[in-house]
């Protein structure tokens, strides 16, 4: 399997361990990634808030760069998925609007074409379940995550709005994390926050609202007996992991729950070592996860 790859900004910034672990995990899965290093930020919904046409054109450029490679595109960030799907929905809705957007891209030798060769833009989670296949994934597991209790945390942007995110065609997309955890041999922990908001989008505007959300979900997962959370969204990771000690102050309780990026969880089951996967860079210690898995060496 060969895919055009948009890693996003945060995966190469404050959560650089995500970018690194994706490379290791992709190799173990046998997925070849062609990184789009000329592509730009998706705008994270913020640029669309300022100027919709600007966000649509910036993302049309990324799509056009991916289409140039002749490959389907994969991202590793729920927020990129949501922000890009929003722009793609508008671009695909109307040929006159698309032509207007393509006007500026044509000056750069680029063009975004609707549905060109069945072109898709999918999060790693969707690729894993829909294209790679969970049976094939399960076959690759060399260190089953037996006994590891994992709480899924999706990130809003791959869960809602359902109509825009292809749930008509793939109605189970909001169960893929559970299915993936099970395919890796882990145990799914049910708790209230799995499909709720981490609060990150308002961290600079209303810190308390933001961290109360993060702290509540981490606390609920701990109460449900989770050993760790797993998320396909690096922005959720910032609030759930990097801000976790601050969130603990807001919800006034002890937290201390490891939060893994999806490629890290997959990588662990495929035999990669925690340090290789950058888990030591996390703020909330991943030591407990490593202890739980110590009995099942790769």
């Amino acid at each position: 399997m060969k895919l055009a790859y948009w890693p996003g900004c945060v995966s190469r910034g404050f959560t650089a361990e995500l970018h690194g672990s994706m490379a290791i995990t992709a190799e173990k899965l046998g997925i070849e990634l062609v990184e789009l290093d000329r592509a730009n930020c998706c705008g994270a919904g913020i640029i669309a808030e300022h100027n919709q046409e600007l966000a649509d054109t910036l993302n049309a450029r990324t799509f056009a760069l991916a289409q140039e490679t002749g490959l389907a595109m994969m991202n590793i960030c729920s927020t990129c998925q949501g922000a890009q799907s929003e722009c793609q929905q508008r671009l695909d809705a109307d040929s006159a609007y698309r032509a207007h957007i393509n006007e500026v891209l044509s000056g750069q030798g680029l063009s975004y074409e609707k549905g060109k060769g069945g072109w898709t833009n999918k999060n790693f989670l969707w690729v894993l379940v829909e294209d790679y296949g969970l049976d094939k994934l399960a076959e690759k597991v060399v260190r089953p995550l037996s006994g590891l209790r994992v709480g899924p945390f999706y990130g809003c942007y791959v869960v809602r709005p359902k109509e825009r995110l292809g749930y008509d065609e793939y109605p189970d997309r909001d169960l893929y994390l559970e299915k993936t955890i099970e395919a890796l041999g882990g145990e799914v922990v049910e708790y209230d926050g799995a499909r709720k908001c981490c609060g990150f989008p308002v961290i600079t505007m209303n810190r308390e609202t933001s961290l109360r959300q993060a702290g509540t979900h981490v606390g609920d997962a701990i109460d449900a007996g989770a050993d760790c959370l797993v998320t396909p969204c690096p922005l959720c990771h910032l609030n759930l992991d990097m801000q976790q000690p601050e969130a603990a102050k807001i919800v006034n309780r002890d937290l201390g729950l490891a939060v893994l990026h999806l490629p890290q969880l997959v990588g662990l089951a495929l035999g990669a070592e925690p340090k290789q996967l950058g888990m030591s860079k996390h703020i909330a210690s991943t030591g407990w996860v490593e202890e739980r898995l110590a009995g099942t060496p790769a």
Binding site: Q52, E53, L54, D92, A93, S95, H100, G107, Q108
Partner: peptide, 25 residues
């Protein structure tokens, strides 16, 4: 520079495409 060119174009036009009103083709 390509990104800057996109900014120049889009900040001039600032078009809003509202699917609720215009619908999909």
């Amino acid at each position: 520079d390509e990104v800057k060119a996109i900014y120049a174009h889009a900040e001039e036009h600032r078009e809003q495409f509202n699917i609720y009103i215009k619908g999909e083709e």
